[in-house]
Amino acid sequence: MSGSVIPTARRLLASRLFLTLCLAATTIAILLLGALLVSIAIEGLGSLSWRFLDSFASRKAAQAGIKAPLLGSVWVCAICALIAVPMGIGTAIYLEEFAKRSRIKRLIQLNVSNLSGVPSIVYGILALAAFVRFFGMGSGDEPWTLGNPESFWYLQCPLGPSVLAGGFTLALVILPIMIIASQEALRAVPQSLRQGALALGSTRWQVVRLVTLPAAMPTIMTGAILAMSRAIGEAAPLLVIGGFLLVFQTPTNLMSDFTVLPLQIFNWAGRPQEDFHKLAAAAIIVQLVVLVAFNSIAIVIRQKLQRPLQS
């Protein structure tokens, strides 16, 4: 026998050191999260008030509030969810339940994962060209309009930097995330359930509608909420389509101007005055509260609604 034995004590020491290293890394991650939350709380809690939530933007820090961006976020995210969630689920259903294994399917799949890696600001550029300007068609002329500007159903084309364009933009950003999450949820439904339904004489769509989709729904909804929490926090693509607008009214229809909470935070954070930094921190607190509420819903859905699919 050749080769000397590494003393056990040394190997155990290495093991101990490695664990210490892992723990240190985890601690750094936790400390950073703590520092983030504490520093923002210290800076922002003082400015948080009902008046802050219920006031419009102002040049005077003491009078400024987040009514317009808060409601703007609600509008834009609601539109985004209405578009991206059903479309994401539909695409996932096609890819998982209908498409045959083929080169085209593989290409589409690769394309979806590529789209999920495209920076959000690039989606902003696409949205600016496609939705806001409608590829330059009708530029210079009056926009094509439908309905009375006062009414809820007022529409115009090109959309301009409106809440509808904003919702479309965010939908572009989160659609790939939504598709991938839904696909994973559908893939987790046991194949035996599909076989059982098919053997009873279901069509493909009946299998999806009656068995696969209901079984996958809790997971899909968790994914949808996580995707939406990404949408709520997006600023870059909306900045591209509208710049930062000072908005002094809440949206009344789909063509209203808007701003969103992250853009307002960006605007205040970018100013040199300390007072506006306090406002930014206060707005961040509101944003994080919304976010945690969203995540809690996701956790509740995951834990309560997720029944076992197989015994």
Partner: peptide
């Protein structure tokens, strides 16, 4: 617990991290 903390971290809007960099990481 740690996974939940990570999930919160993952959901924090990036503009918040920018603010954190500007008002905490650089000065402190």
């Amino acid at each position: 617990i740690l996974k939940a903390a990570l999930e919160i971290l993952a959901g924090v809007p990036t503009v918040v991290y920018g603010f954190f960099a500007l008002t905490f990481i650089t000065p402190y």
